[in-house]
Design a protein around this nucleic acid. Structure first.
Lengths: 245, 245
DNA sequence: CACCTATATTGATATATATCAATGAGGATT
DNA sequence: AATCCTCATTGATATATATCAATATAGGTG
């Protein structure tokens, strides 16, 4: 097993480099997640079929519309999945270790319906989608777990749609700040490794508007922003803003 | 097998009435759909466990937040599934025969994450969700088909989110009109059995705005509206509006 | 260190959209 | 036929939000 960096270099000879040994699936904390119901021999199948890739911040992992031969497991760093819409992007989610990127296209036409790229320097394991689908057919517990995860994703998207379509900007930014603090960085003063544009793409507004709302929140003492470090000072008030839209 | 009308009458004695015989699953065209991969004995299991209910237009099939013991198959009429958000509803989809309503809650906490109600007088078959999940575990072809349908639903939702968040009102109304004409009523002069409020809830705007856009389209000769009958006159121009947002 | 580029910030303005209020039309009920 | 009620329509107005343009800042690079 090797880590292969697909650096988007101008020199094609550098496209596959920095090979390094990685741990195997059995040692990986991934196995406690969606893979928890796999038998050891099944986990071994995945271990043999997978390969690990590293991405620099900003690099594209896959593009919307392209074939989807791999199931992606993010093992370090931070990635975003986003739909490329009419002129601007909508970020569906940030993906951190250990979480998975499996698009709905896997069971439809083997195309990606969204793009993915690395926000921070990241590594990921790629597993052949056919092996994945084979295990779903053969192991009902694994299938149940897979469907459960797809369902959780759908529920998350429902919340997101309601936030995006029924709340105004202040409420949407509040939602995204909670998402970052509670689900992604999991700490309160947190270092936003995403850009302001990403913040805007998460909350469905222009970059300028996102910045302005952040400034207002700062002026009202709800939070502080120093560079990319954001601290929520008044959780209650921010929650209130999230709920009143 | 009986058809039971759960009419929301003031008289509780009338709650279960109008019992009538229905065809069984083997004769039902449902079996060509998601059930196409079931063995005859499995189809028979469903046939014995299901029961058929009829709803009057406007009646609620289930409410967001309530337990989700049944998988719903719409066999006649037209239903809508919608999220009850902050003050207003967002219609996720219209469901016509023969199509299915299975929410993501089935695999998470057995709760509904959206509500469903009948738009037209409708009938539906209800099947115990546990039987459904059991068949998914036991029949990989059925599981594959189920996951495929969930995936198609997710892809549909992606398109919808992009329309709702990145297009302005004219584009969104155009999208909804194509949805109604191509996917729901499947004819060109079609009789809109949904209300203007539903039209607004489908396109994420106020009822007044939806009506105004319709009026503009009428004035520009893109379509005609007589009462609830809508005819698209200039498909090309409407497509153009959909695409330029 | 100076430069350069990408990103962040701010302000001024235009515009898309919701809201409010009033009126109109159709179906049901008496 | 008259009443009532829901739904559809229209107009006037307020406001949320995007856009455009200018400036500031910071990180990387020679």
């Amino acid at each position: 097993m090797y880590i292969i960096s697909l650096t988007q270099s101008k020199n094609p000879l550098l496209m596959v480099n920095k090979l390094q040994h990685s741990t195997n699936c059995v040692d990986c904390k991934c196995k406690y997640s969606i893979f928890k119901n796999l038998h050891p021999f099944e986990l071994d199948l995945i271990n043999n079929a997978r390969f690990q890739v590293s991405y620099k911040a900003g690099e594209i992992i896959f593009k919307q519309g392209t074939p989807s031969p791999y199931f992606v497991c993010v093992t370090s760093g931070l990635a975003k999945i986003y739909i490329e819409g009419y002129g601007k992007n909508l970020i569906l989610a940030l993906v951190k270790p250990v979480d998975y990127i499996f698009g709905p296209g896997i069971y439809v036409d083997n195309r990606h319906y969204y793009s993915a790229s690395a926000v921070e320097d990241s590594t990921a394991c790629l597993v052949d989608v056919n092996l994945f689908k084979k295990l779903i057919r053969e192991n009902p517990d694994f299938a149940d777990e897979f469907i459960k995860r797809v369902s959780l994703q759908a529920i998350f998207n429902f919340d997101q749609v309601i936030s995006l379509t029924q709340k105004q900007m202040h409420g949407r930014i509040a939602d995204v700040i909670f998402y970052l603090s509670d689900k992604i960085y999991c700490q309160n003063p947190f270092n936003m490794t995403i850009s302001r544009q990403d913040l805007a793409d998460l909350s469905g507004m222009s970059k300028e508007s996102a910045i302005r709302i952040l400034k207002e929140f700062k002026e009202e003492g709800i939070l502080t922003v120093h560079g990319n470090t954001l601290e929520i000072l008044n959780t209650k008030q921010l929650r209130q803003i999230s709920e009143t839209g």
